Amino acid sequence: MKKKQWQGWGSGEQAEQHYLVQPRALAGGGDLRHVSEFLRASGWRDKSKTNGPLLMESPDRTVRVAYDPYVLPGGWTFHGRADGPNGEWSAHLGRQTPVEIVAGLTDALTCPRSAHAPNVWAPLEEQNWHTRFEGEHYTATSPDGTAWMQYHHGSDGAAMWWTGAKDEQGNGWTANFTSSSPMHLVQAFSAELANSAPVMRPRGRVPHSAQIRTWSVSVRPSELSAWQQARITAARAATWTRNSARSTRPRTTARPHPHAGSARARH
């Protein structure tokens, strides 16, 4: 699949039943390709072994993203190596973390960092999450009480970001980020966690939970493929723009100043 033109995931034209699910945090894992195909279109290397766990590596080889369903507890693992001012960091997301929320983090990994100071709590507060101190921890909880985000201080003094979602039956997922995780990535994750828009799941892939709401929709495979292709095309376009900007950026050169003996950089 690495070298073939992306053809979409569906075939045929008979409408298929899908469901829109809210809240998205309890929608179940979803299709991994929502994450992996976007990373691949963004220039990431697919290091996966045949029939093995998913393993993707960033173009500069500083970040690795893996999904392994074959071990316990399984799920997503992220590892960022120390790079200049950035320290080493890691994260683990449970296997039932919805891919749309995972993509908040992975999509952000493909984009330049914003000049604005990140604020993990801002997207949650905008969606009316309840924030509070709990001892040494600071916690935000969704309005329906099913999801949370916490900056957690352990008994050993270590800190981490701890988040997840659970229904009344205990079904759901948890995730954690080391305190050294880049804040803009944690904010990108919290923004998708707080996103109130429903996500789509095919028939048979909707979790059984009294805490979710569903709406049945009929979707033609060509429509589904077009939505998926639009996401891939956007990733390729953004990657092309970034690469073009880097290749056309003027280099700093030095030449003698006509009125001084010293050289200065000309931009």
Rank of each mutant, 00 (worst) to 15 (best):
Q5M: 14
A117W: 03
L55W: 11
A210K: 10
S11V: 10
V99Q: 09
P250Q: 02
W173I: 02
T77L: 02
F133R: 13
G80F: 10
H34N: 12
P118C: 02
L193A: 07
S114W: 01
Q127R: 15
L93N: 10
W227Q: 15
P143W: 03
G8I: 13
Q22K: 15
S11L: 09
G94H: 00
I232P: 00
T106D: 01
D60V: 11
S90F: 08
W76M: 02
H130L: 13
P250M: 01
V120Y: 05
L20K: 09
G157M: 00
P118S: 07
G145V: 04
R264K: 13
W161D: 03
R203C: 09
P59V: 04
H130S: 06
W161H: 15
G75T: 06
W162K: 11
G87Y: 12
A254L: 08
T110I: 05
W161V: 00
Q17R: 14
L224P: 01
Y67K: 00
T178H: 03
T241S: 06
R213N: 04
T131V: 15
G261Q: 03
W121S: 11
P258N: 01
T233Y: 05
N195E: 04
A237N: 14
A27Q: 07
V99Y: 08
E88M: 08
V35I: 13
G154T: 08
I232S: 01
L39V: 04
F189G: 05
W162H: 13
G135I: 09
S209N: 10
N128V: 01
G145L: 12
V35D: 15
G28N: 05
N119Y: 01
G28C: 06
A82T: 13
L20P: 00
H137I: 07
A238N: 08
T131W: 07
P250W: 05
E88F: 00
G154D: 06
R249S: 13
Q187R: 08
S190D: 03
E37V: 05
Q211Y: 06
T252D: 02
R242G: 02
F133M: 11
A260R: 14
A237D: 14
T62C: 08
H18K: 09
H79R: 15
S222C: 07
W129D: 02
G8T: 11
H92S: 14
H116L: 14
I101N: 10
E125R: 14
K2R: 11
T141W: 05
H153A: 13
T239N: 04
S216R: 11
G12C: 09
T214Y: 01
T163A: 03
L109Q: 09
M160G: 07
Q211E: 10
R132P: 00
A103Y: 11
R64L: 05
R64S: 05
G87P: 02
R203W: 06
L185G: 01
D144Y: 10
S11E: 13
T174N: 06
A238M: 13
G52F: 02
H152A: 05
T239W: 04
G172A: 02
S225H: 09
C111G: 04
S190N: 04
F189K: 04
V206Q: 01
S11M: 11
T253K: 11
P69N: 12
G170K: 07
K166Y: 12
R220P: 04
T139Q: 15
E100W: 09
G30Y: 00
D68E: 03
A254F: 12
F78M: 15
R45E: 15
